[in-house]
Amino acid sequence: MDSVSTSKKTPSKSMIWLIVILVIAVIIAFLWWWNYRKYISTDDANLDSYRVSVAAQVMGPMVRQYAWEGDTVKAGMILAELDSSSIIAELQEAVARREQMIANLKLEKENLNTAVKNLQLAEIAYHQAEVNYQRDKKLYSTNAVSQETFQDAEDSWKSTGIKVDMAKDQIKVSRAQIASGEAAIASADAAIESTRVSLGYYRIIAPTDGVIAKRWSLPGDMIQPGQTLFTINEGKDLWVAVYLEETKFKTIRLGQSADFTLDAYPGLTFTGKIFYIGMNTASEFSLIPPNNASGNYTKVAQRIPLKISIDSVKKGKEKTGMPKLVSGMSATVKIIKEQ
């Protein structure tokens, strides 16, 4: 009798377990269907923000670094310095050349004053020679003076006229040299200002407020023009960067609501709206964009970038304060389908 009763009980327990498993499977299937019907889900998402790359504009070894990863910086703060000894020497040389030009200009102005005085003397001599010539001319016509005396007076008058012309030409030359000297000084001023501006490039300045997210060099490194030295995370505006499969893109619209969770805060649910939809798939701007010209082609689902705002956060069903968020945190997003 005992063996018969045991065999009767065993099938009934197996049936109960089978029913329980079926019920659980149905519940899981229902939840999946409910979630699929209401949400577009993806875990290819993370927090993102604006980042600024700070690069060098000149070449030189880094000699000092004032900011490190995690430091908060303000716009205009000096982050690092490059060796500027060569450009300082160029600046000193340019200043010395300018001083020499100023001294030469003063000399040219003195030469101009001398040329003006020489012209005055030449004009006096010319007028005196002209008077003597006119007088001897009249006397020669009456044979009161010899031909030799008259000829000397005429030659003196002509030579003094030439000296007047030469004095005028010298004044023109002096004025041209002064104008050239003033232009050279203006050019030297521009060169000095340009060198001073270049000297400023040897100081690496923070272009915006933020936090040093990454430093890419150390003191002693030889820096090249255009080389990124720091990456600053502004941290003012954070959003969720989502890369959604193209097969789920059909019903996506701007302003569509979304819920998401962060791996860092599993008990919190964040809400936001789609405020950006990319016009290209993410692969279009990858380092190695797809090229199917060779014929070796494997079709994969492309992903379209979206941006979702971070509007509020709830713990359960009640709103709570916004926790500390950091760019790069992983997120799981559920975009609410529009009915």
Rank of each mutant, 00 (worst) to 15 (best):
L112E: 15
I178Q: 05
F150G: 00
L82D: 07
V20G: 13
A167D: 07
I252Q: 12
K236H: 14
I277Q: 09
I87F: 07
Y133L: 11
Q92L: 02
I88Q: 15
Q128G: 00
Y243V: 00
A89V: 13
K273F: 03
V211D: 01
K109Y: 13
T247S: 15
A258L: 01
G70K: 15
G295Q: 10
N280K: 13
Q57W: 03
L262V: 05
A67L: 01
M1F: 02
A184D: 15
M62K: 06
I252W: 02
S84W: 01
I28S: 11
E123T: 09
S174Q: 04
L22E: 05
N111R: 11
G161R: 14
W32P: 02
Y39A: 08
I24L: 15
D83L: 00
V23R: 04
I212H: 12
K314N: 06
T114N: 15
D152G: 02
E108V: 04
A301N: 12
D136Q: 13
E90L: 06
Y126M: 07
F270G: 01
A122C: 06
E245G: 14
A258W: 12
V313G: 03
Q302T: 06
M101D: 02
G267E: 13
V73T: 00
T269G: 00
I204R: 08
L306M: 03
T271Y: 02
I87C: 05
T10H: 04
L121V: 12
K137H: 04
D44T: 10
I223R: 01
S257L: 00
